[in-house]
């Protein structure tokens, strides 16, 4: 009589498979790309000669030089103050003479509202580091996000991100993101 082969104990294959599974779960990073989204202005070669004129009070001039120093309206400032400066500039709560004018527009869901005419003009140098540039862009985005959140909370008591797409669109019209990037300058020589 042939000897019966004993059945191989398969209970450990589950453990092995689990080990492999956890390995793949840990190592494969589902890296979702993230970043700051911007829309570039269309290329218009003729406009450079005749840039549109804006009143001085409607422009917040942000300059970053090649040494990564930041100047707001000609005064050296720290990056961390840029957000509050931008919010103050755009909202102009006290209707000051040296801060932007407001324009009354009729917007869906809001009715007639005052929309700031303020524009942030961002000028960077060829030698500015990308890290600094992102820090500045981040501060500006933070300022606009905060203002939109504020408006959304005033109107619907919800954060901007929790609104419906139509409501978001309306808030975007009330606080339009107006960041203009000046044509690059080359102050500090080639780099």
């Amino acid at each position: 009589m042939a000897k019966k082969t004993p059945e191989i104990n398969a209970s450990s294959t589950a453990d092995i498979a689990f080990l492999l599974l956890t390995f793949f779960l840990m190592t494969t990073s589902m890296n979702v790309d993230s970043g700051l989204f911007r829309r570039l202005p269309p290329y218009q070669p003729d406009v450079e000669q005749n840039p549109p004129k804006y009143a001085k009070r409607n422009i917040l001039q942000v300059l970053v030089n090649r040494n990564n120093q930041l100047a707001i309206n000609g005064e050296i400032a720290d990056v961390s103050t840029l957000k509050d400066r931008t919010i103050e500039f755009i909202l102009n709560p006290e209707n000051r003479e040296d801060l932007p004018q407001k324009e009354t527009k009729t917007i869906d869901m809001f009715g007639p509202v005052e929309v700031s005419k303020g524009i942030v003009s961002l000028q960077s140098d060829k030698g500015t580091s990308y890290e600094m540039y992102i820090a500045v862009q981040d501060q500006l985005t933070a300022a606009y996000n905060e203002m939109r959140n504020m408006k959304a909370n005033e109107k619907w008591g919800k954060d901007f991100n929790d609104l419906s797409p139509e409501q978001q669109e309306a808030v975007r019209d009330v606080i339009p993101m107006a960041v203009s990037e000046a044509e690059p300058k080359n102050i500090g020589g080639n780099k």
């Binding site: 790309d33 993230s34 970043g35 700051l36 989204f37 911007r38 829309r39 570039l40 202005p41 269309p42 290329y43 090649r66 960077s124 140098d125 060829k126 030698g127 500015t128 580091s129 990308y130 890290e131 540039y133 992102i134 862009q137 981040d138 690059p184 080359n186 080639n190 780099k191």
Partner: peptide, 28 residues
């Protein structure tokens, strides 16, 4: 890369504008 200077980035942006591909994400 965060150590890159803006010169090359602005050049790229100008080229993208010329190519009329205006949606840009600054990866961070």
């Amino acid at each position: 890369d965060r150590r890159v200077t803006m010169g090359i980035v602005t050049d790229i942006k100008q080229e993208l504008r010329k190519a009329n591909s205006l949606r840009v994400n600054y990866g961070s």
